[in-house]
Computed example of a mutant assay.
Amino acid sequence: MKQNYAAYFPTLRSAAGRLGSAVLLAVAVAGCQNETEVLPNPGPEYYPLAVGTYRIYDVADTTWRNNAPTASRFQFREQVEAELSPDATGQPAYRVVRSRRATATDAWAVDSVLTVTVGRQTVTEQRNNRRSVELVFPVAEGKVWNINAFNAQDTIIAENRFYRNVGQPLSLTRNGKTYAYENTVTTINDVAVEANAAYTTILRTTFAAGTGPVYRVRRRFFHCDNTGTLGCNPSLNYQGQSRSEVLIESGK
């Protein structure tokens, strides 16, 4: 039975961060031969990369200022332009150019550039000199890790991202068209909801096997009144941004 992402969107919280985390390589001892065999690692198939490939996303974006929303729609294209020299550990890296246009008939304009590195244990993205851990291998339900392990946004031992719905189907509808995927995994980090009710950050990405990122959700809100009369209260929704990105086209 296919799932609708919206069905579980509001309910997940950072409590799953209490689950244990470790990045382990799975091994198996082969029968009586006393040999160690590395099991297949399905993780990288959730973020395939090849020079010349591209993905186009439909973006719905709403910015909130003083409790007043401003909505916009546009498109992002992420194109793999080059394979870079391997890093010191021999991990392949790719230069991905993200471009933006207002409508499908407009010309693309470069928005940003990121570097995606695919290792045996992780996939990382680096944008604006900040490196984040997007996937860890092997992929497993409930596995927790630190998305900021390579930057100074959190402590080294922080656990702020986890897997949900590993291997599950997903269908998304955008602009009247449905996009269906048989095998997906969703990474989630919902932070600061319990720790500080004045700040809310929700970051979620769904990856489809053989396709890559197909759905991204980002919500950042600062629940305070600029006038100083109401202070900070989780019931307020004065400042922030809500954005969703749905993959609508990919190819080479």
Results as ranks from 00 to 15, higher is better:
F162Q: 06
R161V: 06
R164L: 03
N183W: 00
G167M: 11
V144M: 04
D190C: 06
V136H: 02
G176R: 00
E182L: 07
T115S: 03
G167Y: 06
V133T: 08
A152Q: 08
N165H: 13
R131E: 15
V133R: 00
Y181H: 09
S132C: 03
T178I: 01
A180Q: 11
N151Q: 04
A192P: 00
R161P: 00
S171W: 03
N148F: 13
T122F: 09
P138M: 09
F150V: 01
E141R: 01
A180L: 08
R131H: 03
G167T: 05
L135N: 04
F150W: 04
A192M: 15
L135I: 09
G142L: 01
E134I: 06
R127H: 09
N183D: 15
R130D: 10
V116I: 13
G167L: 05
N183F: 02
Q121W: 01
R161C: 12
P169H: 10
V118C: 14
N146L: 10
I188E: 14
Q153K: 08
R161S: 13
A149R: 07
T187H: 01
N189T: 13
T115V: 15
A140C: 09
V118A: 15
N165A: 12
R131K: 13
Y163R: 06
S171G: 10
D154V: 01
T187K: 01
F137D: 06
V133D: 03
T173E: 13
V136S: 03
R130H: 00
T187Y: 04
Q121N: 00
G167S: 14
S132L: 08
N160Y: 05
A140M: 12
L170G: 02
N146D: 12
T184A: 10
G167V: 09
R130M: 11
E182A: 15
L172C: 03
G142Q: 02
S132T: 11
I188S: 11
V118L: 15
T186R: 11
E141N: 04
T155N: 07
N160V: 12
I156V: 15
